[in-house]
Amino acid sequence: MIFAITLTLFFAQSTPLALSGRLKAGDDFIDVTVGHAAPFMKDMNGDGLMDLLVGEFGDEDFPVSRLPDSMQDSKPGQYSQGKLRVYLNQGTASVPKYEAFAYLQAGGEDASVPTT
């Protein structure tokens, strides 16, 4: 009995999960460039619906000038541009639906971080 109580204190009930499947945009599975999908949800356009953000590894060269000083001798193409896809929710709060994505913009270009 004491053992069971101790377990309850340290292992609280969490919701069991069931795999629903892979998210789609239109009829296609969302499959990011060079993988390493990193999802997040936030209302990006203020319509009260949560939108889907997905980070990706990317395959374009990351500009060496934006790297720290210690990495300025890096060769072009050594690092890639990891970008953030924004899929606006075209459905409802209970049935989100996504179509095309746009990359998050920052400073007049695609927002990016270095990947390798």
Binding site: M44, G55, P68, G107, A111, V113, P114, T115
Partner: peptide, 27 residues
């Protein structure tokens, strides 16, 4: 604002200049 990690190990900060408008990320 937005914070992002990176493969290279830095934390990149995208500062908002207005709601929904960001500067390019800096470490």
């Amino acid at each position: 604002d937005i914070l992002s990690g990176s493969y290279t190990g830095e934390v990149y900060y995208f500062e908002a200049t207005a709601p929904g408008v960001w500067k390019q990320g800096v470490y």
